[in-house]
């Protein structure tokens, strides 16, 4: 095992290591910036729909389904969720997409090792929430019976984000798995999860990585 693949001391660590089976570093900016841009686009779209639900704007733009968008955004399902959450579902969606972007921006290009908790939080925001929102949108089309063009756009973005984020989440989960296997200690996995550096966790990380070509 090459010493220089190690993550600590961080000042001398190579931050842009490749994690097989991929040929790239999942925490690289080239991986994360597109996620953040896409998430921000979805934030703006969802915020626009929330502004309609709040009646800050009177109408909602829909080049394909026309009036159906308004019927979806004012549907009983939407009202039900408004009752549960206290704010409109589109506003919650906008916050979740903004969270994707914020958590996407935080941390270094080796954050899958230095802060697995952040990557996993990012993963929870992107993957289960993204899938739920995509399912909800399809459910609106099939249950409510109307389609909403912008909702479909955000659902498509959600699914793209899941695909784009999954490699980094996998890297963090694999690290935690390897730490658990190596130490057999739940406490060690916890310390690795919160990013406390210790010898066996760093060895596990070094085992996962290859030098960037």
């Amino acid at each position: 095992m090459s010493q220089s693949l190690r993550g600590f001391p961080a000042e001398r660590a190579d931050l842009s290591v490749v994690i097989p089976p991929w040929k790239h570093n999942p925490s690289a900016w080239s991986q994360r910036i597109p996620i953040c841009i896409l998430a921000l686009v979805a934030t703006v779209i969802a915020a626009y729909m929330a502004m309609y639900q709040w009646r800050i704007v009177d109408d909602v733009w829909d080049p394909v389904f026309g009036e159906q968008s308004r019927k979806v955004l004012d549907s009983d399902v939407a009202k039900q969720m408004y009752g549960w959450f206290g704010i409109h579902d589109a506003a919650l969606g906008a916050l979740a997409y903004l969270g994707d972007a914020i958590f996407g921006l935080a941390g270094s290009t080796r954050r899958w090792q230095y802060r697995p908790w952040l990557v996993i939080l990012f993963g929870i925001d992107v993957i289960p929430l993204g899938l739920v929102s995509a399912i909800l949108v399809v459910a609106q089309g099939t249950i409510v019976g109307y389609w909403c063009f912008l909702c479909l756009v955000t659902a498509a973005i959600s699914l793209a984000l899941v695909y784009m984020a999954i490699d980094e989440v996998y890297a963090s989960l694999k690290l935690l798995y390897l730490v658990g296997k190596r130490t057999g200690s739940a406490k060690a996995v916890w310390l690795a999860f919160i990013g406390r550096p210790f010898e066996s966790a760093d060895q596990a990380a070094a085992e996962m990585v290859r030098r960037a070509a």
Binding site: F8, L105, G107, G195, P197
Partner: peptide, 13 residues
């Protein structure tokens, strides 16, 4: 909970 920089200042224990 967001912090831009991470482990750079941390030491291996």
């Amino acid at each position: 909970i967001s912090q831009l920089r991470d482990a750079a200042a941390r030491r291996l224990v």
